[in-house]
């Protein structure tokens, strides 16, 4: 029997900055038995416009996304924050009587962040992989508080042989990225990032993992500026065993 038809929404950040996260996602979905497609018309989910108060612009972007992804059984994103935009914000963008409201709600129901999709929806045992490393996991805010993602990535990581998970203090506290926040109030954002890298470094872990590239860019960029020893990766890179690619913000 063929698996569900799953559309991967790679997200604009992954597409532009770190395609290897997209490939790791495809690999994991295929291994879980999904029939994976990457719709060509995809661009951005509209979160920047929505969060900046551009309701009309965001709704327009949402309508495009809904049209593009409607035909699939599931939409999966390697980002809790973009997934939360579709799941939580799209329905709020349209008035109850607007026909787009029902379409937004239908898409919201079928949209998932990747670790929760693998763990909760597909429920498959992950492929047996090994990585000798100590890691710490940063809970990105939207994934954690809008979608309740906390235990799923940790459960999947627990299946990786040789991997040691060291929880950091304040794992659930924002890293300071916050989309446009990081350039609107860069000094505050930088201070928050510094608190985060301190917590990561205190664990002594080799790697910080997270489910959102925005946060990872922020943490990796701060760590590099500070000359920290740890590296940063998206959680799917470890789960898919694609760690031959250099870590985020690194060349080796």
């Amino acid at each position: 029997m063929a698996g569900p038809r799953v559309a991967l929404f790679v997200t604009c950040l992954v597409d532009l900055l770190r395609p290897s996260v997209g490939f790791a996602s495809v690999k994991l979905l295929a291994e879980a038995g999904c029939d994976v497609d990457v719709p060509e018309a995809q661009t951005c989910c509209g979160q920047p416009n929505w969060n900046a108060g551009d309701r009309a612009g965001a709704a327009e972007m949402a309508r495009r996304v809904i049209e593009t992804f409607e035909p699939y059984d599931h939409v999966v994103l390697p980002s809790g924050s973009c997934a939360a935009t579709i799941v939580k914000d799209y329905p709020a963008m349209f008035a109850p009587e607007d026909p787009w409201r029902a379409r937004a709600e239908a898409l919201a129901e079928r949209t998932h962040e990747i670790t929760s999709f693998l763990a909760d929806v597909m429920g498959v045992a992950p492929a047996r992989r090994a990585l000798r490393a100590s890691v710490t996991y940063h809970d990105s805010c939207s994934g954690l508080r809008s979608l309740g993602i906390a235990e799923q990535p940790r459960r999947l990581l627990a299946a990786i042989g040789g991997l040691e998970l060291r929880e950091m203090q304040d794992a659930d506290v924002c890293c300071g990225f916050g989309g446009t926040f990081c350039v609107k109030y860069p000094e505050v954002s930088g201070a928050m990032a510094a608190d985060k890298t301190e917590c990561i470094a205190a664990t002594g872990a080799d790697l910080v993992l997270a489910g959102d590239l925005g946060c990872l860019m922020n943490m990796a960029g701060k760590a590099r500026r500070e000359g920290r020893a740890f590296k940063a990766r998206h959680v799917v890179e470890v789960l898919a065993g694609t760690t031959h690619v250099p870590p985020i913000g690194d060349s080796k």
Binding site: V10, V14, D15, L16, L17, R18, P19, S20, G22, F23, V38, E40, C182, V183, P186, E187, S189, G190, A193, A194, M217, N218, A220, G221, K222, R224, R225, V245, P246, I248, G249, D250, S251, K252
Partner: peptide, 29 residues
Amino acid sequence: GSGALKRLPFGADWTATRDFPAPEGRTFM
């Protein structure tokens, strides 16, 4: 080839306090 930028054009607010991890080079799409 270092994997990150110390200064970002049009993004000085980012690079004032942190490096900018460089893209891998080719987009996913």
